[in-house]
Amino acid sequence: MRDFNFHRPASVAEAVGLLRKHSGGKFLAGGQSLLPVLKLDMADPSDLISLSGIAELRGIRVEGNTLIIGAGMRHAEVAQSPEVQRTIPGLARLADHIGDAQVRNRGTLGGSLAHADPAADYPAAIVALNGTVQTDRRTIAADDFFTGLFETALRPDEVITAVRFPVPTRCAYAKFGSHASKYALVGVMVAKTADGVRVAVTGAGPYAFRAAALETALGQSFSVAAIEALGENLGVRADDLNNTAEASGAYRKHLIAVLAKRAVAACL
């Protein structure tokens, strides 16, 4: 790993100020993605600005029908939180199956979203649950947050402070993980709310996307049979999906239907 300067600010404002001063710098959250990236020499920041000492990024609370999770909360903390288990148990279960135990003890919600790995689990949750990313300067709707492979709507000096999740009627996440990394080859989150059904797919494309055909079918009949009735007509083309040595586009398309059915079954 190349050398860099290290900073550990105590507030978000200080962190943003440091990044503006050191424009070649990067924010460091739990480091479970960024440190491997640095070891591979795929990034060469002049400065790392750690977010781990910032108290305002911590905490989980419920306000009315909204669950608010601080960006600095680690996956294990989200999984074990009584507030998350009570309001959105499907989200607690998702967090409990990210990576492995050691990764869940370090990785954070904000770090995962900002890194925007195409195979990460949290993106499926925020998109399906119609969450909102709160940053130091604005709010960004989940549908507008992911913009490309490892790309988001965040400005380089913008810090995610919290994520707001509207509490759904039911939701569940099903994934088929890579055996080596536990990253999702495909993961599907299904959320049923008073306003309808949202279905988000991670792992299959450059970033988490909504499956409109599944949403429409499940909106008419929230059942496994509704997905079976779609057959091949999932509204996605195998050729547009990720095609790697681990899984072809056609296989990933097949997994979308299988996992959507498992998620719906888990909701019922």
Binding site: L28, G31, L35, A76, A101, Q102, N105
Partner: peptide
Amino acid sequence: VDGRSIKACTMLAVE
């Protein structure tokens, strides 16, 4: 680290 298992190859010493 503070009682929780972590991978020491993926944490900076300064942290």
